[in-house]
Design a protein around this nucleic acid. Structure first.
Lengths: 145, 145
DNA sequence: TATTGTTATACTCTATAACTATA
DNA sequence: TATAGTTATAGAGTATAACAATA
């Protein structure tokens, strides 16, 4: 067993390095946490969502999502309103200030992603794409044992 | 920007799932943390090391490594001795009890890794191997900006 | 009785830096 | 003065479960 060749270790080291490279952008420029950024990104992409939907789409658990959304609301980046049709639901929506943050962040974030992907040829990218999906599926199967 | 297609997000989700699938093994069977397991694995592979070398090889920082190694020593899995040639150095070495833990863990851990990799063909595995290296290199470049 | 979201709490992890001893 | 390792400490993140409001 060589740790340096062990796939779980390599994935952890890579994900950590990539995550830091991205976090540096949204932390330094807008003082956002990873959860806050993910929630903003999902709201930017999919519009109004229930809190639970936003949590699921970002793989942030509902408790952390609740706190992150409250911070985003306090900063005027999103709105939170109880759904009149089912008053247990909270509808979350991006506000103009939140959209502005995304519009400033996205070019930088996407440029960094593009720089990473430029390490690979197009066929390699497609294969990586499929490999990540398949590995995730198997990892989730292992977790359920 | 779709979070679900964003490479850093996908890597984070995958690494987390894979990490949990492995941690379940060494946590439940031997009450080891991730850092403790990494240090044991490196010591099993490379024999006696200075504390700083062990930390570097596991990407665990020296402070966390110091604590993890003390816990491993308290459980009788490793020994820590000041190097007589330079009394600032601490030499860490796997003890028989530590080797026994590794011998019980490794087959299970490696079977899980093999199950993950069975999702890919041999040429795909080779490509993934190179892709992870190249992506890591670029991620580290981005971090230094 | 079940569901959505919030609150509480304890625990772990992480980051920064100060400190000790050796060189 | 620099290095290896340890200790201290505060802050962030995580996990579990209890709770209130609503259905």
């Amino acid at each position: 067993m060589t740790l340096q060749q062990f796939l779980p270790y390599r994935l952890a080291v890579l994900a950590d390095a990539v995550s830091r490279a991205m976090a540096a952008v949204y932390q330094q420029r807008f003082d956002l946490t990873r959860d806050e950024w993910r929630l903003l990104a999902v709201l930017g992409d999919r519009g109004r969502l229930q809190a639970a939907e936003a949590a699921q789409a970002t793989t942030v658990d509902k408790m952390q999502a609740s706190r992150a959304l409250r911070r985003l609301q306090a900063r005027g980046l999103v709105s939170r309103q109880t759904d009149p049709d089912d008053r247990r639901h909270v509808i979350v929506q991006l506000l103009p200030a939140g959209r502005s943050v995304l519009q400033q962040l996205n070019p930088v974030i996407q440029a960094r992603e593009a720089y990473l992907l430029a390490a690979l040829s197009e066929p390699e990218r497609e294969l990586l794409d499929r490999a990540l999906d398949r590995l995730l599926q198997r990892a989730q199967e292992l977790q359920q044992l």
